[in-house]
């Protein structure tokens, strides 16, 4: 009888563990920078979301394009309406895997994250070098990568070609906490 109770409790603990293998970041920060001799543009989204399955190192990221804040308010309108067309493509997403991820017992590691990055209706395979810090069930992922504007079929009118860089630099930092459903 007692054995059965222990079994039950054991199963419950197991099932809890299975749930807590997911960690989520609800207020990830993603910033991008475009530098040209004519103009410097920067924008930040502090509500990007990401989730990691610690069991297999799978990771997903999703952010709303409308949530990007620009240095100049008018740029947000142009960005959403004329460039990323957020009415049609409201989100940018990433789905992939952290290669060689060690979720437990390593305080700091640098890993490659390989997966599909989708934006403006175009999906491409990308590889991003990511620094992972962890402790007590919390994980912080940070890094930077570059995006070629043309790869995602974002058209820039000739008149503004000098104002917007062909390649924009993207910085990100996500702080993960255990995911409770």
């Amino acid at each position: 009888m007692i054995g059965k109770h222990i079994l039950c409790v054991g199963i419950m603990v197991l099932s809890l563990q299975a749930r807590s293998q997911l960690v989520i970041a609800r207020q990830g920060r993603v910033a991008f920078f475009s530098h040209t001799p004519v103009e410097h543009i920067k924008a930040e989204n502090d509500r990007a979301m990401a989730i990691i399955d610690l069991a297999n190192g799978k990771i997903a990221v999703s952010m709303l394009m409308r949530a990007f804040v620009f240095e100049k308010a008018l740029m947000r309108e142009h960005f959403n309406e004329s460039y990323v067309e957020s009415d049609l493509y409201p989100k940018a997403t990433f789905e992939g895997k952290i290669l060689g991820f060690e979720p437990y017992g390593v305080e700091e590691q640098t890993r490659m994250v390989l997966g599909q990055f989708s934006m403006h209706g175009i999906s491409r395979e990308v590889e991003i070098k990511t620094r992972i810090e962890s402790g007590l069930g919390h994980y912080v992922l940070s890094g930077s990568f570059e995006v070629r504007v043309r790869d995602y079929e974002i058209r820039i009118p000739a008149l503004l070609a000098g104002n917007i860089a062909e390649t924009v630099a993207v910085d990100f930092i996500f702080e993960f906490m255990p995911y409770e459903n």
Partner: peptide
Amino acid sequence: GLLEILEEEQREIPQ
């Protein structure tokens, strides 16, 4: 899927 979980979470952000 992981993206579906995020999608559910994002539903609360007004656009």
